[in-house]
Amino acid sequence: MNIEFADVSVKKGEVTVLQDISIRLSERRIGVIGRNGSGKSTFARLFNGIEVPTSGKMLLDGVPERKNLRRHVGFVFQNPDNQIVYPIVEEDLAFGLKNLKLSRNETEDRIADAMRRLGIDHLRNRLTHQLSGGEKQMIALVGVLVMRPRMIVFDEPTTLLDLWNKQKFMATINDLPQHVVVVSHDLELLRGFDRILHIEAGRIVADGNPVSVLDNYIASSQC
């Protein structure tokens, strides 16, 4: 699959958050880096239509899309507390599927399958607010996975995790069959990716393989 930004700008009030972004993305593993306030969170939110362009278009496989982007692209937030809607794990996982109007059997199968795949079946009947940070992030991911998106966007998914959960969560991301876009300040985690975008002041200032983009980014922070 490929996603294309055609002359996309986003303005919030008087402020231009993203300016004239034109780019075509078809790689499986894409990393996004940039300083705080650079516009990368807004950039990430364009992928599944949480944010909509003030001007310009989003194209999915060459076709302009607005409302349907979220059917194809899932989104995992930095803080899983903001993503978990229901008090019980199982109910929460069923939420997105209910919105897709799937049958009870299909819902059941998808939840069981996704939980087994990530090895967290035992969390099924737990209260969501009693889970640890790492467990919550896993549940947030499963809630998106069960909807079987073709691409998943992660906005700083490891910021709130300890070293162990961070490694585990990144390994999980790397094993996903879907296309993934990961926004992160954790540069080491993006080393094995196919393509890195560096966003600064609302524009893409560097675009290429991890070695060149990440090393330049680190160098630019040191002067």
């Binding site: 239509g49 979220r70 937030f77 809607v85 997105g96 809630g143």
Partner: peptide
Amino acid sequence: KTADEVAQAIHARSFD
């Protein structure tokens, strides 16, 4: 602020 992001997350999970 949390509520605002929860609303976004609910939208992202195809609720409307």
